Computed example of a mutant assay.
Amino acid sequence: MQKTLPRVLFYSARMWSLLNNSGEGFGGGETEMWTMMRGLADRGEVCVSLLTAADVPAETVIENIPVAGIPSPRLTDRDSRLVRIAALISYAFGIGRRIQQSRVDVIFMKLPSFEMFAVAVAGWILRKPVVFRGVSNWETDEKNLAEQIFHGSRLKVRLFRFCLRRFNRVLCQTQHQRSELNRNFGVEAVLIPNVHALPDVITSISARQGVLWVGRAHPGKQPQAFLQLADANWDVAHTMIMAPAPEYSALSAEVANAASIQTNLQFQPGLPSGEVLKLYELTRVLALTSEAEGFSNVVIEALKNGVPVVSLFWNPDGLFLPIGESDVSDCAAAPGFVTNGSVGVAALMMKRLNQDDIFWKACSDMATDYVRKTHSPDVVLPQYEALFAGVAR
């Protein structure tokens, strides 16, 4: 008897920007989701398809994965609540038609957004199980949801809470997120780590130099702090890849202008994913200035390439070693370090990692070992296969 495979439709609003190699509008989350989709498709235990918020040519197939698109409505702040609700309903029905055409068993999506509400409604109308994966720590409490994600809209927070409690499964990336979702929303989330393909070879230390920052223009990423780090270590090369975001165009311009006058800082306003991945092979340290993350895919991409991380604030489930100024010169090796917001301490640790080859190598080995044991496809993909098989029944 032939085995029936679960048919899973992945929804990602910004995935088309990654797949058409535009270099804009996507982040590490899209790269990681595509890695997961390709891995599941290659293993043959799940039938995978993609729906994205774009005008995609008919019958598009990329790496054996069918891709369909339905552009999301173009709304502005001037649109009334009635217009927004009508657009949401219309978009939900459009997505519903696409889901019906795809004949799927399970819908998978992430990120709280307008599109998320529409996908959830469509799934419920069609009685399809919906799996939602949380991404950021901001998604685990209502205050940050309102301030950091929904720009003060209490209605969207209430809608998110309503959806979160009715999804068939809610996934998270860290133990901290799991406990916060339970405490703040009464949701029992399932922890499945992000999945990342491992490089065949780790570049030798002789080919590496400097400090790298990768992210998109967003106040929560605190890109200005990286400018301060570059200023503090004027004799160390710094590279900044900041993907533009239309909603934060003023921030993008401010950072780009400030970066242009720093002689030890190379600024690039976004790059195709493949070009960004090559940079990890050439750098010694990744700087992370974000106030909050889920489990940053940028961090995992760095760690899997043997790049230690220096973080100002974020420390996922205690992976990074907390340090103060007195610890920099003699602390133990670790995959990463966190400085409790101190730019000065972070700059000192970055300098040490650029100058002390033995210390860097020990940290680098710990970084790759961690990713291999926690985030590799052989570890993570079977967890997703079991999840989808259970939900699809």
Rank of each mutant, 00 (worst) to 15 (best):
S12E: 13
L18Q: 09
S22C: 11
E30Q: 13
M33Y: 00
W34T: 13
G39A: 08
D42V: 12
V46P: 03
P57I: 06
E59K: 15
I70Y: 08
D77S: 11
L82V: 14
L82T: 15
L88Y: 13
V104Y: 02
M109A: 12
F117Q: 07
A118D: 04
G123R: 01
R127F: 01
R127L: 00
G134Q: 07
V135I: 11
V157D: 14
F162R: 07
F162T: 07
V170C: 11
V170I: 10
L171R: 03
L181W: 04
L181M: 05
N182S: 06
N184R: 03
N184F: 02
N194W: 02
V195W: 01
H196L: 01
V201W: 15
R216L: 00
A217C: 14
G220H: 09
A225I: 04
A225T: 10
L229E: 04
L229N: 06
T239M: 14
I241V: 14
Y248P: 08
L251N: 11
A259M: 02
T263Q: 08
N264M: 06
Q266D: 14
L277C: 13
Y280L: 01
E281G: 00
L286F: 08
L286G: 07
L288I: 15
S290G: 04
E293Y: 01
I300R: 02
E301V: 07
V307C: 13
V307Q: 03
L312F: 09
P316K: 13
I323Q: 07
G324S: 14
G324D: 15
S326Q: 15
A346R: 04
R352H: 03
I358F: 06
I358Y: 05
F359W: 09
L381I: 01
Q383C: 03
Y384I: 02
A392G: 08
R393G: 14
